[in-house]
């Protein structure tokens, strides 16, 4: 494998941190559950980019293989989370996270 050109590494790291930060902000602050879910995916992808960057940088397949696992798990997680939201929205008539407070029992 060929490692990244000089200057590319910093750019990629910056982009992945930015993706993660945007995702985290959205997950913490947006009221809609669906947006929170999307932001969750954004965070995951930020991490994925990070992994791929360093995999390339070190010419090692470790990060790339971890990336594959994460994509796999993220797909499953998205499927389950969406179906949960379908059931929740039927029950509560809303997808706003604050409306689910009585789930605390």
């Amino acid at each position: 494998m060929i490692s990244l050109p000089v200057g590319e590494l910093e750019f990629h790291v910056f982009v992945s941190i930015a993706l993660f930060a945007i995702g985290a902000y959205g997950f913490l602050c947006k009221r809609s559950g669906l947006i929170a879910l999307m932001c969750l995916e954004l965070m995951l992808n930020g991490v994925n980019l990070f992994l791929m960057t360093f995999s390339k940088h070190h010419s090692s397949p470790d990060g790339a293989s971890l990336f594959l696992f994460i994509v796999l798990v993220a797909a499953a997680e998205a499927a389950i989370a969406l179906s949960i939201f379908v059931i929740l929205s039927r029950r509560f008539g809303s997808v706003v996270l604050d409306d689910y407070r009585r789930l605390k029992g």
Binding site: A24, F27, L28, C29, A36, L97, D98, Y100, R101, R102, L103, K104
Partner: peptide, 14 residues
């Protein structure tokens, strides 16, 4: 701390 609000938990976590 047990508020029931998912986002509060997320804040705590972070």
């Amino acid at each position: 701390f047990h508020t029931g609000s998912v986002q509060t938990y997320a804040w705590h976590f972070v």
